[in-house]
């Protein structure tokens, strides 16, 4: 099955192009993005230095100077685009099964969940109902971005989808689990941030010295499970 999904290619400055398959949070479209990402990882385009998969697009960063060293017939941009178009013509719509399921413990205790009450009251729910809805669903890792190892997970139940805070916090602790619209995510590192914080995981999501510095990959599945403050402290220790 060849690619039937429409796509658009546009320049991102003079040294990157983006292939956009849409502008929405959709598992099928994200599957295409990750298919294409996997293909370009397995069979790299020469002179490409980085690949940035996002919700519905893949950005391809290339080194203009290296391309000139390979060929001078065409501009670097035209040369890359020709290769990308060729790869796209071999891409298929084939459904890509989601990656491995990772279960991540989250403590929803008030001391670690400063916005849980707000999210609950906004939707006329109890905090327990919010926790039940947040943990019931298996989320997809659509992309990583914003911070090293920060996973964008979607989609949360509409009953708990909540816009970002109007005024971002100056410092969000590492491990904080937040909601922004229909997305949920984990602050892998301490950072300023505007997501509604409903819990915290004791799991270190980003380990710079580890063999795999980032715990999750695009396409993985994640399910949260609720733990007590005691278990949180035990796991954190």
């Amino acid at each position: 099955m060849t690619l039937t999904n429409p796509y658009e290619i546009f320049q991102v400055g003079d040294h990157a192009i983006t292939v956009a398959f849409g502008n929405e949070i959709d598992a099928h479209i994200n599957g295409l993005v990750i298919n294409f990402f996997d293909e370009l990882k397995a069979n790299p385009i020469p002179c490409v230095v980085d690949l940035i998969p996002a919700y519905a697009s893949l950005t391809i960063v290339y080194d203009i100077v290296s391309i000139w060293q390979v060929q001078q017939q065409r501009s670097a941009s035209e040369w890359i685009k020709a290769d990308v178009l060729n790869r796209l013509s071999h891409l298929t719509d084939a459904y890509r099964p989601a990656g491995s399921l990772k279960r991540i413990p989250v403590c929803y205790a008030p001391s670690l969940a400063p916005d849980l009450d707000y999210v609950a009251s906004t939707h006329q729910l109890t905090t327990n109902e919010v926790i039940t809805l947040h943990t019931a669903h298996v989320y997809r890792v659509y992309m990583l971005g914003f911070l090293p190892g920060f996973p964008y997970l979607a989609t949360v139940h509409p009953k708990i989808a909540t816009p970002r805070k109007a005024q971002p916090r100056k410092l969000v602790p590492a491990g904080s689990v937040g909601i922004a619209g229909e997305q949920t995510g984990i602050y892998a590192l301490p950072s300023p941030g505007g997501w509604q914080l409903i819990g915290q995981t004791p799991v270190q999501m980003f380990k710079p010295d580890g063999e795999q510095p980032v715990a999750l990959s695009p396409g993985d599945q994640v399910q949260f499970y609720s733990i007590s403050l005691q278990e949180f402290n035990h796991l954190k220790a």
Binding site: G13, A54, A56, V61
Partner: peptide, 11 residues
Amino acid sequence: SLISTGVTGGT
């Protein structure tokens, strides 16, 4: 409203 996409130096 745009969903997040890749950006680069100079954007």
